[in-house]
Nucleic acid binder design. Structure first.
Length: 675
DNA sequence: GCGTTAGTCCCTCCAGCTAA
DNA sequence: TTAGCTGGAGGGACTAACGC
């Protein structure tokens, strides 16, 4: 929930006289006020200022504060309050109506002593969201305000001006203005009037701002997009460098206090005020439009865009601005903006204003506005940085959906050890899963746990198994480990590899027993394996594969170090032609012939890219088939694995049909597994 | 008022480059 | 290796300005 603050309670610095009047001060009194007022710098709330400058107090004040206690344009120090005197040509209602149209509304208005119902004479007081400390910027603001209200008194614009008290407060608005907002109002007013180019140049000359592509050169940007360096012609206002800021919130979302910069004409800082109307020497970086933008995606993912284009949601000025800065940076986005403008007939009155805004955004290369600075639905969706990224994430970029939560490594490690302890103590059978970040020290925790407990540790590879074995030895922890298949002569290893490839694991064991008689290494391997199988309540190191495929009763608890999912659900692929070839061999066996033919047709007729169920009722006895396939040396694919799978998918890669399938291996049912 | 011209917007296609 | 990105060319649709 956005917290609304009472702007009127915010304090500002002015020089406020201590003497009140019930009429305009006489010349002598004015001289006295003038001499003393610069020394009376006062920090006062807007509300108190309103009370102090009207009857019964009606004190005089200067919007500026001064150095050395001396009131002059040279000793001007800073200013947050600006005022316009209207003595003729405009009544209060008319002035307020114009202010509202241009979105440059005064914070309060008070009538002066010579005000009457027939002749409105009043002062419009504008409070800014920051204290201005650069005289050039102060002059820009004052010129902007007098441009917005040409009927205002031209003689009351100097920096050191004293403003007398008045009759009463005629209007209050709980709001403050920013420098870019005032300039936006000026641009809107000039652009919608006649002879816009001439008037824009005239304003630039009067304010000292550089003229850039038909506009005064100023831009509201995010901190990161601010130009580098600050020269004589460049004024940069960084949010963090501002003083006495008033953090206001609009009725919707936080959108105050953007950074901005102003570019002054080459000579405007010089004493003689000479002005060059050459185009601004400070160029705006060219921004390339995003191409191939999927507007469909944006339609699905962005409520503001969706409801905006359909006309379901009434867009406020700042929201339309935000939408435009995003869409106009996309190729084809202009049409979408036009679509939005035409989506509601009520927008017709705003058409011209929005068209001007569109031109300004394009000319000044406004960057896409961030969602969280203007979107009313920002809390309702998981959104990217801005609307463009919401529709299309550029290659190589990352969208952070949720900030990670960090915790001390030591604390997490302790939690990990406690989790292991709990599993070991808990005697209930089942699978326990521990999700811990990489590098936390899971293996270390397991090794520590092994000091006082017996269980089986399954590691992904023999290499890692040996590493853990070394760590256990270093801590003098007794353990046994499953042996590694010894290096065999080429003919043997080729045969074993072939058997593994076709999925004939049972036959591998059978074959090893056969050659054990002539090969001592294999004999030792089998003996070691037997020892492991018959061990009871000893710390055992094994591999994921061995742990899944071997039924031993060495320990009741099995801990998988690292994720065993790749071993539990291995993915295989093979050419359809290999499978069909294997099936033709299997058809020689009369018992399964019909089943195999049906299975083969199922695969050949399966559509590509769609997951297919491998009908389980067609399953022949894999055990019987293993012998047939093993005997057929020309079959080299994992046919047995396929006959064990539940689902497969056919894919066409470079005009060749492939079958992909996932095999499902079960965790040992008699153990408590944890990983 | 009408036809011509210039400019804008935006789409498609192509070729070459490059991040993943 | 490959999909995504970029720059550039070309062209259709539309609009504004201009000349007659």
């Amino acid at each position: 929930m956005v917290k609304e603050i009472n702007i009127l309670e915010e304090k500002i610095n002015v020089c406020l006289d201590h003497e009140g009047f019930n009429k305009k001060p006489e010349k002598k009194e004015v001289r006295e006020i003038s001499e003393r007022i610069a020394g009376i710098t006062t920090s006062i709330s807007i509300e108190e200022l309103m009370k102090n400058v009207t009857i019964p107090n009606a004190r005089s004040f200067t919007p500026a504060v001064f150095n050395e206690g001396k009131r002059s344009n040279q000793t001007w120090k800073s200013q947050q309050v600006f005022a316009l005197d209207i003595d003729s040509g405009l009544n209060i209602e008319g002035a307020l109506k114009q202010s509202a149209e241009l979105r440059v509304e005064p914070t309060f208005v008070y009538s002066t002593f010579s005000h009457s119902d027939e002749n409105h004479k009043f002062r419009m007081v504008y409070v800014l969201d920051e204290e201005i400390q650069d005289l050039r910027v102060r002059n820009v603001i004052q010129t902007a305000l007098t441009t917005l209200f040409p009927s205002s008194d031209k003689n009351a614009n100097d920096a050191a001006r004293i403003l007398f008290g008045g009759k009463k407060i005629e209007f209050v608005k709980r709001g403050v203005l920013s420098v870019p907002k005032i300039l936006d109002g000026v641009v809107q007013k000039i652009r919608s009037g006649s002879n816009a180019t001439r008037e824009m140049k005239r304003f630039c000359k009067a304010s000292g701002l550089a003229y850039f592509k038909g506009y005064p050169h100023y831009k509201q940007v995010e901190e990161k997009d601010l130009p580098n360096g600050e020269g004589n012609t460049l004024f940069i206002s960084r949010t963090k460098n501002r003083t006495n800021t008033i953090n206001y919130y609009s009725t919707r979302v936080k959108n105050s206090h953007f950074s901005y910069y102003l570019v002054f004409s080459k000579d405007s800082f010089q004493e003689d005020e000479s002005y060059s109307l050459e185009p601004s020497s400070f160029g705006e970086p060219e921004v390339k439009q995003v191409r191939n933008f999927p507007f469909d995606n944006l339609q699905k993912r962005c409520k503001l865009y969706r409801e905006g284009t359909l006309g379901d949601y009434w867009l406020y000025h700042s929201e339309m601005f935000g939408l435009m800065t995003n869409l106009l940076n996309i190729e084809g986005g202009k049409s979408k903006v036009v679509e939005i403008i035409n989506s509601r007939k009520e927008y017709l009155t705003k058409k011209e204003e929005w068209s001007l805004m569109m031109n300004q955004i394009k000319k000044m290369n406004y960057a896409p506005t961030r969602c969280d600075t203007y979107c009313p639905f920002v809390g309702e969706c998981i959104h990217a940085n801005n609307m463009i990224e919401q529709g299309k994430l550029p290659r190589g970029s990352v969208q952070v959906l949720q900030e990670p939560e960090f915790e001390e490594v030591d604390i997490i490690y302790k939690k990990l050890e406690e989790a292991f302890e709990e599993i070991i103590k808990n005697k209930d059978q089942g699978v326990y899963v521990i999700k811990a970040p990489t590098g936390l020290g899971k293996t270390e925790a397991i090794v520590n746990l092994a000091q006082e407990n017996n269980f089986s540790i399954a590691l992904p590879t023999h290499k890692l198994k040996d590493e853990v074995s070394q760590r256990l030895n270093a801590k003098k922890i007794k353990h046994i480990k499953v042996p590694v298949l010894p290096l065999l002569q080429e003919s043997f290893s080729e045969k074993i590899e072939h058997l593994y490839n076709i999925g004939a694991y049972r036959t591998v064991n059978k074959f090893l027993r056969q050659i054990a008689n002539e090969n001592e290494d294999v004999s030792n391997f089998l003996q070691d394996l037997e020892k492991v199988k018959s061990s009871k309540r000893e710390l055992l190191l094994t591999t994921h594969q061995r742990a899944i495929f071997t039924n031993d009763d060495s320990n009741s608890t099995l801990i998988f170090d690292e994720d065993p999912i790749p071993s539990l659900f291995p993915i295989y692929q093979m050419k359809v032609s290999d499978l069909v070839f294997a099936f033709t061999k299997l058809q020689d066996n009369e018992v399964n012939k019909d089943v195999i033919i049906t299975l083969q047709n199922g695969i050949l007729n399966a559509p590509v890219d769609i997951v297919q169920e491998r009908s389980s009722f067609l399953l022949p006895s894999v055990k019987d088939l293993e012998q047939t396939i093993v005997e057929e040396s020309t079959v080299s694919s994992n046919v047995l694995g396929f006959l064990n799978c539940d689902y497969f998918i056919k894919k066409k890669i470079h005009n060749t049909d492939y079958i992909f399938f996932i095999q499902r291996n079960n965790l040992p049912l008699t153990k408590r597994s944890s990983f």
